[in-house]
Design a protein around this nucleic acid. Sequence first.
DNA 1: TTTTCATATAAGCTCTCCTTATAACCGTTG
DNA 2: CAACGGTTATAAGGAGAGCTTATATGAAAA
Lengths: 293, 293
Amino acid sequence: MKTKLDYYRVFYETACFRSFSTAAQRLYISQSAISQCIQQLEKDLGVQLFVRTRKGISLTNEGKILFLKVESAISAIEQGERQLEQLRHLESGELRIAAGDTITTHFLLKYLEEFHVSYPDIRIEMANSYSAGTLSLVKEGKADLAFVNMPIEDDEFVIEPCLEINDVFVCGPDFEIKSSYSWEDVAELPLILLENHSSSRHFLDDLFAEKNISLDPQIKVAVHDLLIRFASIHLGVSCIVEQFSTDELKKGLIKKLPLSPPLPTRNIGCAYLKNAPLSYAAKEFMELIMTLR
Amino acid sequence: MKTKLDYYRVFYETACFRSFSTAAQRLYISQSAISQCIQQLEKDLGVQLFVRTRKGISLTNEGKILFLKVESAISAIEQGERQLEQLRHLESGELRIAAGDTITTHFLLKYLEEFHVSYPDIRIEMANSYSAGTLSLVKEGKADLAFVNMPIEDDEFVIEPCLEINDVFVCGPDFEIKSSYSWEDVAELPLILLENHSSSRHFLDDLFAEKNISLDPQIKVAVHDLLIRFASIHLGVSCIVEQFSTDELKKGLIKKLPLSPPLPTRNIGCAYLKNAPLSYAAKEFMELIMTLR
DNA sequence: TTTTCATATAAGCTCTCCTTATAACCGTTG
DNA sequence: CAACGGTTATAAGGAGAGCTTATATGAAAA
């Protein structure tokens, strides 16, 4: 690079208008400044770029050759700036989310719909994985946000709670419910629980383990919805998330068991890397969740 | 354009080296300057471009998007500068010459050969035309240099004499030559001359017209070489350029008539536009002619 | 001629951008 | 643990690039 890039800006405008004075107006500087710029540029490149003639100026052959390149350079820069502008205004870009099935279905879905209506040009990418997996996806840069069951220990992440959830034990409509169940009572019932590797199951196991109770489910399933279905047809007693089952509870397809003391509340959290800044789309999506919830 | 182009230069180097301090060294400025530049750029664009982390820095997604564009912009500029450099060093470009057949054959040819040996990468373009036509070609920008018979009146051109030439009357070897010919004598001979529109013919006609002598050739030809051939086989007496016929004169294929007074010397000139600067190739070609002649 | 519209030049000032110096932060190492 | 060697950030002040204004110059138009 033999000269200041800014000179090329002046060169470009000047060449476009074939006039020093017009370019000066366009660039909001004096004609003298243009003249000096071009002289400097010509000196730096060792090439005469303009023919100064009575009526304005014109490009020399060398000037024409240079102009083609400068034109495409400036156009590239402008393209770049326009792309960033679009990103900022959410007119392009992508929202990449990592989350498990349950959270996606029962929590994210409505926000995703809302987001897509507001910003139809943002491509949405969903990556399904188990809790631990979602964080990995973010670490690897394959997702911007991960939605996970809290709490999670990882100081590379900021994790903001998005939704309080309550785990409850439920049974089918014909099940005869006692007035109250201790944790030990529940452990004796025929349980339908999630598979061992799910974080909800871990949470539950750990709670009961603290009281030296071990849970031995009769049925293990992989999907939250199946917990509800199986309970509702009296295959046993499920532990489900109350907020994800409001419909079924209201319709009486399943009934809550009065647990005493109830299971502690936990949170769904939104996790993102501490160090990397969030994409505009991701920021806006979090904003939307926090506002609408 | 939202920011100074020079900032992009800094951005580019910084992104290339993924380090403020390395870029600083590379650009021969302080690390602090880089830091400030990038901050200003980020502020101007309203976008974070780098993730500052313990070990150096890395591009954000926005930064990556921008980088692609800036890279191609800078590469375009560098290409342009390289092209100009090549032109300056005569490693590319073209030499466009307009001239008549005679001048080309008898005068330019040896210089063109020489030039092509010295600068094999310069494309040579020859445009053949009559004297007036050559100047038009230059005016229209279709040629850089025109070689013409002088004198010529046109104040748009600079015309530099390149070669003195002498017009002489010649006859075949068997022709009986008197000791001296007056202009009137010559006019009585059976003449072989160029066609009316050639500038050499004009020159001759005008000279004789000044002395109220009109020339009425028996034979008109279009090409200088034919003047020689026809004279040499005794079809008449030709008026030719001595410098273009040295071989034939030396070999005795034709003989000079002693004219008294002799025809005045004239010049072949090299013409180029006053206002437009000459291409490097054209400048060099003129230089070569002036040196070698 | 004079006027008008170009660009070029001169001189001086302003404000951008750089430098120096220092801070803050992190990881490594003695 | 403290010191060091490596980042980048910040503060403050100074240099000079690049601007402005004013004027010159030159060619065409009036």
